[in-house]
Amino acid sequence: MNILISGASVAGPALAYWLRRHGHTPTVVEPARQVRDGGYAVDFRGEALDVLDRMGLLEQVRALDTHMGDAAMVDGDGNRYATLPAVIFAGDLEILKGDLTRILYEATRDDVEYVFGDSIASLEQDETGVRVTFARGEPRMFDLVVGADGLHSRTRELVFGPEEPFLRHLGIYTAIFNLDNYLGLENTGRLYTVPGKAANIFSARDNTEARAALHFVSDPLDYDRRDVEQHRRIVAEHFAGEGWEVPRLLKEMMSAEDFYFDANAQIVMDRWSEGRVVLLGDAGYCSGPTSGRGTSQALIGAYILAGELAEAGGDHAAAFTAYERQMRGYVTEHQQVGREGAERFFMDPPT
C-alpha cells in the first residue's frame, strides 16, 4: 500500500522503516525544512531496546549514549545539597533527541520518500483511499494516512476535531534550548529548584555543548503556539528574580535558535483510528514528558502497527483494531506513570 505518514520525528521514520520491510511504500511529510535537531535527551526502556536491535540501530544509538552520571541539586548560591541518581532520569539508555531523529532518517532516506517543508491541509477518504491536499504540494491519493505528528497533531484535528477534548494538562510548562557548556560540566548536570519552579543544565555531546530546561507550575495558559517571542516572555516572567544561574539562562534563552516551549500534557482518546486514518505515538496517546516513556511508546507502536498491517494482509480495519488492542494496556500504564511523575516533579529527590 501507499501510506502517508505525517511527522518526521521519531514515530514517523520508525514506522516508515518497518513499512518498507513489509513491502509497503511510505511517504513522510514534515513541516520543518530539514531533519529537526535540538531538543532534550530521550531515553529507552525495556522493549524499546529490542525494537532498536531488530532495526539494526541499537549499536549506533549506544555509540551516542550521553553516559550521564548523577546530577547535583543546588541552592540559590550554587551549593550542592542533594544528588539525583542518573537512573531516575536517563532510563536504560539515553541519547539526544536530535541524534535519534538523525539516525532514523539516515536509516530510511534511501528507500523512503521524505517531503520536507510541507504539511497536510485536508483529508477526504472513501472506500478506495484518502485524497490528501497539502499546504504547498499537489494533491495525492494514498491507501492509508498515519498521524505521527505529535501532541498538537494536525492529522488528529482534521479527523477527530479540536484537541481540547483529548488534552489532559499535567500542570507544568517547560522551555528547552541549547547553550554553551559554560559551567564545564562533564557527563552530569545541575538542578535548581524552588517551589513550583526548576532550572536544569546538563552536558551534551561529549561535554562540548549543554542543554537547559526551565520548568514551572501553571494552570493552562492562553497563548499563541506559533509566537516564539511570546513564549520567551512567558518563561522570563515566571523566572524573574530567581537566583543561581537563572539570569544567565534567561539571557541565553532569548537568543537560542532551537528554543522549544510547551505544556506537559497527555492525549487520551477512546480510539486511535477512523476509517483509513490512524494515529501513532504522541498524536494518539502522548504520556507526557514526566513519564519518561514517550520515545519507547513511539518505537514500539510503530513496530506493532506495521506488523499488524502485514499480518492483516491489506485489511486495514482489522490491523488498526489489533494495533490498538496490543498497545492500549501499555499506554494506560505509562500515562499513569506520567501523571504520578507530574505530581512529584518538584519534590526533593532522595539524597
Rank of each mutant, 00 (worst) to 15 (best):
P26L: 05
D92I: 00
L57S: 03
I95D: 01
V61F: 01
G38V: 05
K97R: 14
A82N: 14
E94I: 04
L84F: 13
T25L: 08
V61W: 00
V74C: 10
G38F: 01
D50G: 14
H67S: 14
D37N: 10
D92S: 15
G76D: 12
A32E: 15
V51A: 01
G38Y: 02
L49Q: 04
V87K: 10
T66W: 03
T66Y: 02
E94Q: 14
L93A: 08
Q60H: 06
D75F: 07
E47R: 11
E30G: 00
K97F: 10
R62C: 02
L64M: 02
E59P: 03
R33H: 11
L93F: 01
E30K: 11
G39K: 06
K97H: 11
Y40F: 13
M55V: 15
D65L: 06
R62H: 02
V61G: 05
L49T: 12
M55W: 13
A32M: 15
R45Y: 03
D37S: 11
G46D: 08
D53W: 06
R36S: 10
Q60E: 08
T27N: 09
V87L: 08
D77R: 14
G38H: 01
V28Q: 04
V61C: 06
D43A: 07
N79A: 15
F44A: 00
V74H: 06
A90H: 11
D43T: 02
L64P: 03
V87W: 04
L49P: 08
T25F: 00
E94A: 07
Y40D: 04
L49K: 07
R45L: 01
P31E: 12
M73W: 07
A48C: 04
D65G: 03
A63H: 09
G76P: 15
D53M: 00
P31I: 15
A41K: 13
P85Y: 00
Y40I: 11
D50H: 13
A32C: 12
D92Y: 03
D50I: 05
E94T: 09
G91I: 06
L49G: 01
E30Q: 12
P85I: 01
G78N: 10
I95V: 05
L96D: 06
R80N: 10
T83R: 01
P26I: 02
G46N: 05
D65W: 04
Y81F: 14
L58I: 15
G23S: 03
G39F: 05
D92Q: 14
G76N: 13
G39V: 12
N79T: 15
A48R: 00
D43W: 04
L96G: 04
L58P: 00
H24A: 09
Y40C: 05
M68R: 12
L64F: 00
D50Y: 03
L96N: 04
D70T: 14
K97V: 05
H24F: 07
L64A: 08
A48I: 08
D53Y: 01
H67F: 11
R54Y: 02
L64V: 04
A90P: 15
G91K: 03
R36K: 12
A63L: 05
A41G: 15
D75Q: 07
V35N: 02
E59Q: 11
R36P: 09
G76M: 04
D43Q: 09
T25H: 07
E94F: 01
R45F: 09
R36T: 08
R21W: 01
